[in-house]
Simulated assay, not measured.
Amino acid sequence: MSAQQKLDVAVVLGSTRGGRFGPVVADWLIGHLEARGDMTAYLVDPAVTPLPTVMPGWGAELPEADQELLAAVSPRLAAADAFVFVTPEYNHSFPAPLKNTIDWHNQQWHGKPVGFVSYGGLSGGLRAVEQLRVVMAELNAVTIRNTVSFHGAAQCFDADGRPKDPAADAAAKTLLDQLDWWARALRDARRARPFAA
């Protein structure tokens, strides 16, 4: 498959907390994306490329240092055909660094699909996903119905970073198949006519 036909998928990590489990989950997911042959994956990690945390007032110019931080992330999100958020659940919702990444951008999300892989304790991060669906609808994104969720995440993976339950791999395939369908349909639609915000 040519590079032009492949989908660019941004995997966005939600947590920057010390000792976070997100990179294990993201690496596993990226392995699935790369194995498909029809998708190119790249990681957006707010711990590696942080964004500003203070937004200027309306009409105020963004400081140069903040512009540089955005320049490391914004073009990658704009180029993406689709997104997968890898997120834990904090206090029945999703982490502040993920909200910050979302809020610094707008048009980058328009008319594009978003899938979710969540992890955590008993809830497996599903309440974070519920909240994210509402937020992303406000930003004109399409959320994928099927998700992948790891309940008691640290016990779900072996020492090599692979899920112990093969059902996780089947769930990832279903999620990515649906992401592929939506991403191609929406990419074709955006090419035929720019998204009306």
Rank of each mutant, 00 (worst) to 15 (best):
A47S: 15
V9P: 07
V12E: 10
Y90M: 04
D177H: 05
A183K: 02
D165F: 01
K173M: 11
N146R: 09
R145D: 09
E89S: 01
R133W: 03
R193D: 11
L7A: 07
Y42F: 15
G120E: 01
R36M: 09
G115Y: 02
L186Y: 02
V135W: 01
A10W: 09
T53L: 14
L43K: 15
D66C: 08
A80L: 03
T40C: 06
L29Y: 12
A154Y: 08
F116D: 03
F21K: 08
R190L: 05
E130S: 14
Y42M: 13
A128V: 06
F85S: 00
Q5P: 00
P46L: 09
L126C: 03
S118D: 05
R191M: 12
D27T: 14
M39S: 06
F195D: 11
L186E: 02
R36L: 11
G19H: 14
L43T: 11
A167C: 05
I102H: 02
V86N: 00
S93G: 09
V134F: 10
D169R: 08
I30Y: 06
A141M: 01
E130W: 06
A168S: 09
T49P: 04
A183M: 04
F157P: 08
R187D: 03
E64S: 09
T16V: 15
G57E: 13
F195G: 12
A196C: 14
H32G: 14
F83L: 00
V44M: 06
P75N: 00
E89T: 03
G120R: 02
L43S: 10
N100E: 08
Q107L: 13
E68H: 10
S74I: 07
A60E: 15
V25H: 08
D81C: 01
F150L: 08
Q107F: 15
P52Q: 12
E64T: 13
